[in-house]
Simulated assay, not measured.
Amino acid sequence: MRDDYFQMFVDNFGEPVNRREVPASSVEKYRFKLPDALLGYWQSEGWSAYADGLFWIVDPDQYSATLKQWLSGSEIEHVDNYHVIARDAFGSLYAWGERYQRSITISSLAGGIVALKSQLQQRQTNPDRALGIFFATATKADFDFEDRMGNPLFERALAKLGPVSESEMYAFEPALSLGGRADLDGLVKVDMDVHLTLLDQFRR
């Protein structure tokens, strides 16, 4: 049975699609590292996409190398041991720290890491509640990307390019950091791992 937090999330994002069962070994691997509530979502919901692929609950193992690359040399590289728990269609990664139970965001297209630095080393006293609030208060706008005129791109990208698969993301070519423009004409579907590696190199 879904808790109230996750039910609010589903009310906003719809039922899951592209569902993949989570092995019991993965649940045990992350026990005592990620919130029990998240492991419960894995067991009941699987690793799945929502809202036509706008938002995904993911296997942290698939993103560990990419996350390590993005954190390398940053101020928060050694603050905690972070694990990616979710991603969006534009390649942003949402990670959770196992020591302090705080979240960070890798905003890949914007080329930065978003974190509340003042709280990163303050241990979260109720990780399950914090995780639940992350889902319950999420809106589709939180995971969309705006064009240079301030208009959301996801629905238009979906209509033009079709949904992204588990290994894909929407990206701009050329990349924004190389002078690309944030508009629909420059948006393409790309392999996520490859493109996130390139974006990390471009920002250094």
Score class of each variant (00 low, 15 high):
K160C: 08
A24L: 12
F135V: 00
D59P: 02
S167P: 03
S48D: 10
F143H: 02
V84C: 07
E155M: 10
S92G: 04
R204K: 14
G14L: 07
A115I: 08
E21K: 13
L67W: 00
D183C: 09
S118Y: 11
E146P: 06
G73M: 05
E21T: 12
E28N: 09
A95W: 07
F154R: 06
L198D: 13
G112C: 14
N18P: 09
L39D: 02
S107I: 08
Y5M: 00
T197I: 13
K68A: 14
S92H: 08
K160F: 05
F55L: 11
H78F: 13
A159L: 15
S74Y: 01
E173V: 11
V164M: 07
L54D: 02
P127V: 03
K140D: 04
M8S: 11
F172I: 14
P23G: 09
A138G: 06
E155W: 07
L198F: 10
S103V: 06
L54M: 13
T125L: 15
D200I: 09
A141F: 08
F32E: 13
M1P: 13
D4Q: 09
Q43T: 15
A110P: 07
L39N: 02
E21W: 04
A182Q: 11
A51F: 09
D185S: 15
D183Q: 11
A86G: 01
S26I: 11
G73D: 02
F55G: 06
S103K: 07
I57D: 01
E166I: 13
K29G: 00
E45G: 04
V190H: 05
Q43C: 13
